[in-house]
Amino acid sequence: MKKPSLVISPSPHVHSGWSVSRLYYETLLALLPVVLGGIYFFGFGVLKPIVFAVIGAVGAEVVWEKAIGRSVTVYDGSAVVTGVLLGLLVSPSVPWWIPLLGAVIGVLVPKHFFGGVGQNAFSTVLVGWAVVFVSYKAIMANYPMPHPAFGMVAGGYVEYPPLEVLKWDGVDVIKDIPIKDLLLGNVPGTAGTTSVIAVFLGGLYLLLRGIIPWQVPVAYLGGAFLFQLVFWLINPARYASPVFHIFTGWMFLGAFFLATEKGTTPLKPLPMLLYGLGCGILTMVIRNWGIYMDGVPFAVLLMNALAPLLDRIKLEPRGRVESLA
């Protein structure tokens, strides 16, 4: 009898079916409500920066991996996610090469220079965004208005994103912005940073699927809320209410999509909480006293740098070790 050829391998012999590509394609699925919300309020123009950012991210990844002789990993979807997220952070009215350049830098510098997917110490999206934002400040300071059908008119109280209004016009003016508009996304801004509900839907999906840990978004939003609550209670004439801050700008996108980028977050529960807390507090610090409109991108980038340090907090393993003779 011919002996059958049997596969030998150590246990476990089964797998859950998770894969890197599934992880990123499901993240892409979670971004769908954000993109759709953007299209709803700002028209199909929001797709333009997304398309160029995806082209830049995917192109840079393919060219780089071919050039240095690595196997091309573009099908895992991580570059596409970087591209889509970056596209959501850029106004449709900027020139096409801005998202393209941001995506190329975002994919190459923090990710591929350090070894590829998951090896990025800093968020690919935010590095790409920060480079173009700092380099082309005038071009980037440009935000679309929601479609006129939603009742916004040029010259009204919100010609600028709510946080910009807060920065220049003070706390009194933003009181006029209805919370409903903030939740739905009926305010000026880039597609990813306006609609709280769309981002929350996507983030909830990621949470329920277990793709992102609950600690980071909860600590992020909670930390920012509590920090701002203290200052708002002390001086409501100077500081905006925590509710306004939570529902405005990059906050939700940062908590659910940017701060949780694989490779940049700590792995253990307590460090993740501290990381989220740090992100939230730094965001509020920059918003309250910084020169930038929104604190999220730089807060997350700063905490990215701290993440490996936080991860050194030891998780106490269960069980004791005997002294080995």
Binding site: V7, S9, H13, V14, H15, W18, V20, L23, G115, G116, V117, G118, Q119, G210, I211, P213, K262, G263, T265, P266, L267, K268, P269, M272, L315, E316, P317, R318, G319
Partner: peptide, 25 residues
Amino acid sequence: EIFHYKHDPCIRCGFCVRVCPMNLV
């Protein structure tokens, strides 16, 4: 078909930390 494990790099997603019953990394 048999599932095969492979030596792809860790992407630091933290899934293993979330399931390890002994609190390891």
